[in-house]
Amino acid sequence: MKRGRGGRVRRGAKQKESLAEELINEILLRLPVKSLLRFKSVCKSWLSLISDPRFAISHYELGVASTEKLMYLAPRARQYLSIDFNESLHSNSAFAALHLCFRPPKSFLYEILGSCRGFLLLICRQSLYLWNPCTGSYDTSQPQHERVARVEYFSLRANKWKELEPNLLCYRQFSNYRDNQVGCLFNGVLHWLAFRYDVLINECFRYISLPLNFVLGNLSCCHLRVLRGLFSLCAVKRGVSVEIWLMEKYKVQSSWTKTIVVSVENVPTRCFYPICSTKTGDLFGIDLATGLVKCNDKGQLQQHRSYFSTPTNYAVTVYEETLLSLPYDSKQGS
C-alpha cells in the first residue's frame, strides 16, 4: 500500500484520543499475523478490517511483519502443531496445537507437498488439499485415480489447478525417498534433485550443477533446502553426520561451500534432517522419530524436544503466516 500525497486525515476533537481508521489500518499492516488474529476481538470495526481480503493482500505485500512457522503434522496421533522455530524449543509459547477444519474421506495420512503465500499443499489418498492454517481457508482437487507421472499445481493467481505438460518431465528423480519428490522453492523457482539436476522456471526446466566431485552414491540421502537465505544442499550420512553446502552465488557451481558439518552423535535418535534455519543462523530440523532438533553454526546440538511418546508418521514444512484466503484475486489489491 503506497501512501499517496494529499487526502490527509483531518483531526477532529474526537480523534485526539482515538486515531482515524486510515491510521489504524497503517499500524495493523505492520503487525504479525498472530497479533492480528488476537486483535480481531478488539471491536467489530477491527474485525471487519482485519477480515477484509484487501487488507490481507496489503499485509502480505507490505511484508514488514512477515513470520515463518514450521508445520508439524502427525496425522496418526491427530496432532497438528505450528511451531515458532525462532523461539526456544522448550518454551511453551513456541508452539500451538491446530485443528484441521476439513476431513479427508477415510485415511488420516496427510503428506505435505509444499507451501506458498501461507498455503500448505497437502496430499491424502490422491486428493490434494490447499490450506491456510492461519485463516482456515482451504480448497481441494478431485481425486486422481490413474497412476500416471504428472505434475499438478494450484495457481494462486489464476485460482485454479493446473497441470504441467507431461513431456516436460523427462528426467528421473534421485532416490525413492519421498522428500525428494517435493520441490524446494527458492528465488521463486522450484528445484528438484534428479539424475539431471532440474529447476522449474516459468513452467520449463533448467538445470543447476551440484558441487564439483560431489558423490551422491556415498550418502544415505540428500535434500535441497533454503538455509540462511541461500540455496543449500544437505548431504546426510545416516548415523554419522550431515554436511551443509551453501550456494553462496545462485547458479554458480564454484560457489558451493561446505559450511557446517553436524555430528549427530548427541542427537538421541542419531538422525538429523535440517529443514530450515533460524534468524540467528541456527539449523532447525527433525530427528525422524518424535521430535525436533536445533543446532548452532558449529554443528553442535543445542536443543532437542520430543512431542510424541512413540515414533509416528509425520510431515513437516516451513510456511509463511498470511491472512490470505481463497479465492485469491490479485485485482483486489490494486
Binding site: 488476537r38 480481531k40 476481538s41 474485525l47 509459547s93 500451538a96 496445537a97 491446530l98 492454517p133
Partner: peptide, 13 residues
C-alpha cells in the same frame, strides 16, 4: 463465541 470459534487457529487471547 468469537474466541471459541477461533480457538482452532491456536490463538491465545
Amino acid at each position: 463465541a468469537y474466541r471459541e470459534e477461533n480457538a482452532w487457529a491456536g490463538v491465545k487471547f
